[in-house]
Design a protein around this nucleic acid. Structure first.
Length: 731
DNA sequence: ACGGGTCAGACT
DNA sequence: TAGTCTGAC
């Protein structure tokens, strides 16, 4: 343990390797061992090495890290909604139609009766007839987890008060309490306290021998009070008090109980949090680490619950973490690669350098649904219907994120699972596809659908989808999901640009976003091989499938898909070139939250025509504004105009190019950049520069250094600024 | 052909 | 980068 991990290779951003308390279901194991045969062996060779844990240096072995885990969280959320359920055996189920739905959370009362996660509702009733089954809320035909997400946020906001806080999942949080503990140790050390909080006294301290009927709480009190303790133990003692306090605060403010682990790193804290549940906390003093790990089954360690853990067992004969100790680091590296080998060597010794990340918000949002077996989607309109539902939810969540956290997502990704009934090439997987994310429900729906079609085309191959017109199209979609990632904060703070934005309604943020959308042109003019979205033409569906209207009316009576289609088509403006010019997401976005409250689709059509005329006005104005010197001025000149993009036109003129050939690349780069915004960048005031996000500053500075030329992928690189404001169909 | 719906991260 | 894959809850 004393070994500091200078030896570790620093690669990647690192994850959170701790361990899973919950045992994988039997089904999971069987599927691994039976279905996938000897898949785990892939971890052996260097070629098969992927998605493996990576070791990171441990900054200190005296950190105070806590892992807080909500007890059967979904159940608690439902019990808070329906207090009469408190104390009763309760479980949360989703999709009640088939066999009573699947249990996704089980109260501790119900567990006593043998009710388990992964049971069906009917099974649960069999082993515990009085079990209260509560359904997960459903919206748009799918499970709606927003209530749980929001409840999780409540907890996070409380836990974040005492130190760096990382939201690890919907119901788990890591805390770095080192500073708080050090402060307590300096100002008001536990050793000097007359009374120790009752909740803290209920802590479990690993390695503290509670022999023969001795008063457990008294032992804990003594441990916390010890004057001759190791510095690290004293810090943990502070951690005990802080975490106990936080947990009580959570209970007081949210009515939720949680369990916690307190240790010197994330791995051990996570290990501990699951050892005494519910509503208790467990401490891992430095001195008891070895004893804890020696007999710990290897697959209980986080990151070792899967194939890697199986490989360790099967190939290396490692059954406990302690068994790992016998292998020299080189041996492990030889077998599992440098990074993973070092990581394994470290975790065997309780060393884990993962930092608590300090992130309260998710890095991505996703919405998905599975269509098991016979419910697989077999027609494109069916897929489109569900995609629309998923996109609606996603869009709603993105709007909330923008509104509440002032963040913008930049990438939209579509995932699907599919099978081909005809071809025996069922191994082939449906490819995921992504594109720049444009705000507005209709746009997201449109883009997601086009991504799907691109994926499908690739999936079925040239002649695979010929039978589309009739009953059997030869394929089925068993799961669909859309997600939004690359979420970055909108610049904020005290600078004037931010103030400018913040002084405006959200609609002005939105006006920054969907400006340059001549995506087709942009795609075409990118150097071949360097474009990111080849194969995906978002404007022009490549496959002709039956129209959805008839299908929709027949199968989904209450569908407003047609409405949405109207919306998306009316909001798209066909240019003379036949390209779709979409520049109206500001309106959609500004209405985002209002829309959520009351759907006012009719008004949108009106807004849209209004928008179009405004758009034309702006178009002219943009040209006139060529030569504005200050970015601020440029912004302000469009201030009174509630919608529209001011960067797009000039950008497109330069990059999208009036000539489709690649001649725009041979042009002098600096010249191109100088003109890109229609004014001389050399005349930007330095104070204005400072107000820009550093990302943009850097780029502008690079423009001003004529000798520093960048590679020939100028288009991709030079659009940072406009892309910053305009996440549209190019990157 | 999945506990279902989401997330995060590593690697190419 | 986009895309695949592992792993966790």
């Amino acid at each position: 343990m004393t070994k500091t991990s200078k030896r570790c290779v620093e690669v990647g951003t690192g994850g959170h390797w701790t361990y899973s308390v919950k045992l994988p279901s039997l089904f999971f194991w069987l599927s691994l061992l039976v279905d996938k045969g000897e898949d785990y062996r892939r971890f052996g060779g260097k070629r098969g090495e992927r998605a493996m844990p990576v070791a990171k240096p441990e900054s200190s072995d005296s950190r105070v890290i806590a892992h807080v885990d909500m007890d059967c969280f979904y159940v608690q959320v439902e019990q808070r909604k329906q207090p009469q359920l408190r104390g009763l055996p309760t479980a949360v189920v989703q999709y009640n139609e088939w066999k009573g739905g699947a249990l996704i959370a089980v109260s501790y009362e119900a567990r006593k009766f043998g009710v388990k996660r992964s049971m069906r509702g009917e099974e649960a009733k069999e082993v515990c007839p009085q079990v209260q089954l509560v359904q997960v809320p459903v919206a748009r035909g799918k499970a709606d987890l927003s209530g749980y997400r929001n409840a999780g946020s409540e907890v996070v906001s409380i836990l974040a008060r005492r130190g760096r806080c990382e939201r690890a999942s919907i119901d788990e949080v890591y805390l770095d309490l080192t500073d708080a503990a050090e402060m307590m140790l300096a100002d008001n050390p536990p050793q000097g306290m007359e009374t120790i909080d009752e909740e803290a006294l209920k802590s479990h301290i690993l390695g503290l021998n509670n022999e023969d009927g001795s008063d457990v709480k008294e032992n804990v009190r003594k441990w916390i009070h010890r004057h001759n303790a190791d510095h690290r133990d004293k810090l943990l003692a502070c951690g005990i008090l802080i975490v106990a306090e936080l947990r009580m605060q959570v209970l007081k403010e949210t009515e939720f109980t949680c369990s916690a682990g307190i240790a010197h790193n994330k791995m051990l804290a996570k290990l501990a949090s699951g050892m005494n549940k519910p509503a208790q906390q467990t401490v891992v003093p430095f001195s008891s680490v070895k004893g804890l790990l020696d007999t710990l089954p290897i697959r209980k360690m986080k990151q070792l619950g899967g194939k890697l853990g199986i490989s360790l067992q099967m190939d290396m004969g490692v059954n406990t973490v302690g068994d790992l100790l016998q292998f020299p680091e080189e041996k492990l590296q030889e077998r599992y690669g440098i990074n993973t080998g070092t990581w394994l060597w470290n975790i065997a010794r309780g060393i884990s350098g993962e930092e608590v990340e300090g992130r309260l918000l998710p890095k991505s949002h996703g919405s998905g649904k599975t269509f098991p077996g016979p419910r697989a989607l077999k027609t494109v309109p069916a897929v489109q219907h569900w995609l629309n539902q998923l996109c609606e939810e996603l869009s709603e969540r993105l709007c909330s994120d923008l509104d509440q956290n002032k963040r913008i997502a930049h990438t939209l990704t579509l995932h699907a699972r599919a099978y081909k009934s005809s071809d025996t090439d069922s191994q082939k997987k449906f490819p995921s596809k992504s594109c720049p994310l444009r705000y507005g429900t209709a746009k997201i729906q449109e883009d997601a659908f086009n991504l799907f079609q691109a994926g499908l085309r690739e999936y079925i191959g040239f002649y695979g989808g010929k039978t589309q017109g009739s009953h059997c199209s030869g394929w089925g979609i068993t799961s669909l999901s859309v997600s939004a990632s690359k979420i970055v904060p909108i610049p904020s703070g005290t600078c004037s640009i931010a103030k400018y934005f913040q002084g405006q309604s959200t609609s002005h943020f939105s006006s920054m976003q969907s400006s340059d959308n001549l995506n087709t042109e942009a795609t075409l003019s990118l150097p071949s091989g360097s474009e990111c979205y080849s194969e995906v033409n978002l404007s022009e569906p490549k496959i002709d499938f039956p129209k959805e209207e008839s299908w929709i009316k027949d199968t989904v009576p209450d569908l407003d898909l047609q409405e949405q289609k109207d919306l998306s088509s009316t909001l798209s403006e066909k240019t003379q070139d036949g390209f779709i010019q979409e520049d109206i997401s500001p309106l959609l976005l500004s209405g985002c939250l209002e829309q959520n409250r009351s759907k006012q689709q009719q008004d949108l059509t009106k807004d849209e025509s209004q928008f179009k005329s405004e758009y034309k006005e702006r178009k002219g104005k943009r040209l006139k504004d060529k030569g504005t010197y200050s970015i601020i001025e440029l912004f302000k000149s469009y201030n009174p105009n509630p919608s529209g993009s001011f960067l797009s036109h000039e950008y497109n003129r330069t990059v999208g190019g009036t000539d489709a050939s690649s001649s725009s690349y041979s042009r002098d780069e600096e010249e191109g950049r100088r003109e890109a915004w229609g004014y001389n960048i050399d005349e930007i005031d330095s104070s204005v520069m400072e107000e820009l996000p550093t990302e943009i500053q850097d780029e502008i500075k690079s423009w001003m250094q004529p000798h520093k030329r960048r590679p020939n992928n100028m288009v991709k690189r030079s659009c940072t600024i406009s892309h910053y404001f305009s996440p549209s169909k190019k990157s």
